[in-house]
Structure formats: structure tokens, C-alpha cells
Design a protein around this nucleic acid. Structure first.
Length: 232
DNA sequence: GCTGGAGCGCAAGTTACATCA
DNA sequence: AGTGATGTAACTTGCGCTCCA
């Protein structure tokens, strides 16, 4: 049992330049495995399994560090530079992605032919595109949550301050003389359970004597800043 | 009907290269 | 020219699903 470990990014050139210590059959097995890869549209786990099952008496293990190379090679055997999709290819892919974010085999094949790419490349592009979309959405969500957090923190601060004021107010009657400034605050009376957006209408900032009187009678029984708003 | 292996597609994470400031 | 940051093509790994013997 022979084990052949190949730790190269570009494993066909490695195979072709295998040390003479490996016999022809071994090299042939390894090269066959390479061609199996090339024929495969997907570099999935299954293809790895195939690599590891090449013969009865000889086991050629292609230990890939990276297999990106499989067809990323020029005819002269030198590593091909990383593919950059053209603007036209990208826009067509984008257009298709807008229509459906996943592709079935036929769609993938057709798109690959249209773009003069391998189906695997189209597949990878869609996978990466979905990942980018998800990442962007996560960033947007994160930003939104941060804003919510900031708003709630501010609201909390304001309410805490309001609470302090009310506590102080409670000690210094009469209430109607020191109405809390709670503009723009959503508050609820714990007794009558009415929610009011305090200060929604700036025109109500000024109290009439009658309003103050009403407020006073209510507030003495319901000592809450919320109830102050009920009289606006 | 249940089971295990093969095959496939996907998400998540990583690597490596191209490009740009 | 050299370099770090960024974008992205291509990859690996793990999981779930379906099909079939």
C-alpha cells in the first residue's frame, strides 16, 4: 500500500513532476483523480472520497491544502491569475440573482454557458453573493439595534430624571406650582393606566387656571406625572 | 418500514489573489 | 516601489436532505 501525499496548491503540475520514486501506475492513478476533479462540476466532499479510493493495491491520497487550481491553470502549466469577472458578467449574474437567489442545475448550466464560465463558478458566485447579502443585512440590523439602544438609553435617562423630579415634587407641595417638564415623553399613570404622549402639542404648554385646578384635584389622588398629561 | 452509504446543495468560515489608496 | 486594507473568487468543512440498495 503506497500513500502519495500532495501538498501543493496546484496539484496537476505536482503530479506531473512527481518524483521518479513513484511508479507509472501510481502516477497514472493520481492523474486520473485529477481528471475526475476536472470533470466534476463541484468540488464537494464526495469528490474527495473518490480521490481516496483509487485502487486495490495502491492508495493514492491526494491531501489537498487547496484545490482551487483544478482548472485555474494556463496551458503552459503556470498558475493562472485569479479570475476577475467582467462588468458584463457581473451585471448578468446580479440580474439573475435579483430574480432568484438560488439556481437549479438547469439554470446554473444555462447561465454558465451564457457567461462562458464553468457551472461551478456560477455556483460559487451565487454562494458568495448570498453570503454578502446576509452580511449586509446583518450590518443594517446591527445599526438599527444600536439606534434603538441609544434611543432607549436616552428615554431611560429622561424617565429617571423625571422620577427624581417627581420624588422631589412630592416633598414640596403644592403640586400644581411645579409641574414637571416632560415634553415628548410617553408616560402612563399607574392608577388610571392612561398612556399619553406628553408635550405632543406645544400649544398646550401653557395651563389655564381651570386646567391647573383640575390637574391638582386629580394629581392629589393620582400622584403621577402621567396624569398631568391627561389634562392637556 | 428501517438503515446506511452515496451524492448533492447550502451556510459558514477561511484562504489567497487583485486592486487601490 | 512597497505596503496595508479591502473586495471577492475559490476553497474547506459540516450539516441536512434525498435516493437507492
Amino acid at each position: 500500500m503506497k500513500k502519495l501525499f500532495l501538498k501543493h496548491d496546484h496539484f496537476l503540475p505536482s503530479l506531473l513532476s512527481l518524483a521518479p520514486s513513484f511508479d507509472t501506475a501510481t502516477r497514472t492513478h493520481a492523474i486520473d483523480a485529477y481528471h475526475q476533479h476536472q470533470a466534476s462540476s463541484s468540488f464537494s466532499n464526495s469528490s474527495v472520497k473518490k480521490e481516496r479510493d483509487l485502487g486495490d493495491d495502491q492508495e493514492v491520497v491526494l491531501e489537498r491544502v487547496s484545490s482551487r487550481v483544478v482548472s485555474d491553470e494556463d496551458e503552459d502549466g503556470s498558475p493562472r491569475k485569479k479570475l476577475r469577472l467582467t462588468k458584463q458578467q457581473s451585471s448578468i449574474l446580479e440580474h439573475n440573482f435579483k430574480q432568484h437567489t438560488t439556481l437549479n442545475t438547469k439554470q446554473k448550466q444555462a447561465l454558465a454557458e451564457q457567461l462562458n464560465l464553468r457551472p461551478r463558478q456560477v455556483e460559487v458566485w451565487f454562494q458568495n453573493r448570498r453570503a454578502r447579502t446576509k452580511l449586509k443585512q446583518t450590518e443594517v440590523d446591527c445599526e438599527l439595534l444600536n439606534k434603538c439602544y441609544e434611543t432607549l438609553t436616552e428615554e431611560n435617562k429622561r424617565l429617571q430624571k423625571e422620577l427624581q423630579e417627581l420624588k422631589a415634587l412630592k416633598l414640596t407641595a403644592p403640586y400644581y406650582m411645579q409641574l414637571p417638564a416632560a415634553a415628548g415623553t410617553l408616560t402612563m399613570c399607574p392608577r388610571c393606566e392612561r398612556v399619553v404622549n406628553v408635550g405632543e402639542n406645544p400649544s398646550t404648554a401653557a395651563f389655564s387656571l381651570e386646567q391647573k385646578s383640575q390637574f391638582f384635584s386629580h394629581f392629589t389622588t393620582h400622584p403621577s406625572a402621567t396624569c398631568y398629561a391627561n389634562f392637556l
